[in-house]
């Protein structure tokens, strides 16, 4: 049970402002351990050592975008079946469908509320482990 509890999140986001808010939302409010990466490339380098239980990624980033990053991360043996959540500003039904096809179990809309983001993630986590 406790091994199934969400603790370690790999967070990929290129914008510093959002990184900072998400850090408060995830670490201080949610009590998670978070590794923040500013790009897909950085995430690829850090992922195996950090061994996340969950990947939380922005969609639109310079260089590798979210879906591309996820695809590359999933090639790493340790990350083959690590669940992923995308965060994006434009959540339209067909885009959500595309992102799910790209391997996300859920899509969270930006802007997010820093006070409830952690709970939202916990709910998704619980649903997918129910």
């Amino acid at each position: 049970m406790s091994s199934n509890e969400l603790q370690r999140i790999l967070f990929i986001e290129d914008e510093a402002d959002i990184q900072a808010v998400a850090q408060v939302a995830l670490e201080a409010v949610g009590g998670f351990t978070v590794k923040i990466c500013s790009s897909g490339e950085e995430a690829l380098q850090a992922a195996e050592a950090f061994a996340p239980q969950l990947i939380l990624s922005d969609v639109m980033m310079p260089g590798m975008d979210g879906p591309m990053t996820l695809l590359a991360l999933r090639r790493l043996p340790a990350l083959v079946d690590i669940p992923a959540i995308f965060m994006t500003a434009k959540v339209q039904p067909q885009e959500v469908a595309q992102l799910r096809t790209a391997g996300a179990m859920e899509v969270i809309a930006k802007p997010f509320d820093p006070m409830t983001l952690a709970q939202q993630i916990k709910d998704i986590w619980r649903q997918c482990h129910a």
Partner: peptide, 14 residues
């Protein structure tokens, strides 16, 4: 596009 997209996501957060 990316720059404006980022604003669309971050500005309301703040």
């Amino acid at each position: 596009h990316r720059r404006i997209h980022t604003l669309a996501g971050s500005a309301p957060t703040f």
